[in-house]
Simulated assay, not measured.
Amino acid sequence: MDATLSSLVGRIQDIKGSLSSLMMKLEKDQAQWPVLLDSFATLSGQVNMLLKQLKSDKAPALHSRVVWPCNLSNKGDEELEKVTEGRIPVFHHEVVPDYLRTKLDLDLERQQQEMEAEGDKLTPEAAKLQINQLNERAGQILATISQYRENWGAVQTW
């Protein structure tokens, strides 16, 4: 179990490093399209490797393990803050349900079920009509943007 967890932590740290590298590129506006595609391909590969490792027969069934908070406190915990890199300064009764949640919030789950039910009621003809209307509207928006871009270029060349 310890070896599996340390291996998972290593893979997650690799993913975290790739994400932070991508974020730095985006913040510094150094992200050209090929660079973004490479970064996303790297992230995709890393996530797939993590999922394969989780589904592996060699990995113990982590889904059957229970995480139980043993120490709740309203006081700040420097060790917890250090381990979570400043994301969780206090672990108390108000935040535990959010951090240890395994299901969607009940309101979100209800909204999702309502949207799925609404989508199930839609006939294929009505769906095709909505798709065509959306594509038409998107085309109009793109034409408007192109027009403004051309006008902006003409204004800039004064």
Rank of each mutant, 00 (worst) to 15 (best):
A31P: 06
Y99T: 02
E81L: 02
L108A: 12
A143D: 11
E78I: 12
M1R: 08
N151C: 07
K121Q: 14
K58P: 02
C70V: 06
G86Q: 09
L50E: 04
E125S: 11
Y99L: 15
Y148N: 10
L100C: 13
V155I: 14
K28I: 00
D57V: 12
R137W: 03
L122N: 06
Q112L: 09
I141L: 15
N48I: 03
N135W: 01
T4I: 11
D98P: 01
N135G: 00
Q130L: 15
S44K: 00
N132R: 10
L129S: 10
F91S: 10
L19W: 01
Q130S: 10
A117S: 08
S21L: 12
I131P: 02
N151G: 08
P89L: 01
L100M: 15
P97C: 07
V155N: 07
D120W: 04
W158E: 13
S18G: 08
D107G: 06
K28L: 06
R65G: 09
P34E: 03
L134D: 04
E136H: 15
L19A: 14
G45N: 11
R149N: 07
Q130D: 15
D120I: 13
D38R: 02
V35E: 09
T84M: 07
L5K: 09
I15Y: 00
K28Y: 04
S7C: 05
L62Q: 06
N74F: 03
R65D: 02
K128Y: 10
K52Y: 06
K103E: 11
D77M: 01
T42D: 11
T102I: 13
T102P: 03
K25E: 09
Q113Y: 01
K103V: 06
N151F: 09
V35C: 00
E79H: 03
L5H: 04
A41C: 05
A143F: 09
M49T: 14
L80F: 04
K103Q: 06
E118H: 07
A3L: 06
A126Y: 08
N151Y: 05
V66F: 12
W68G: 00
L51N: 13
V9L: 13
M23K: 09
E81W: 04
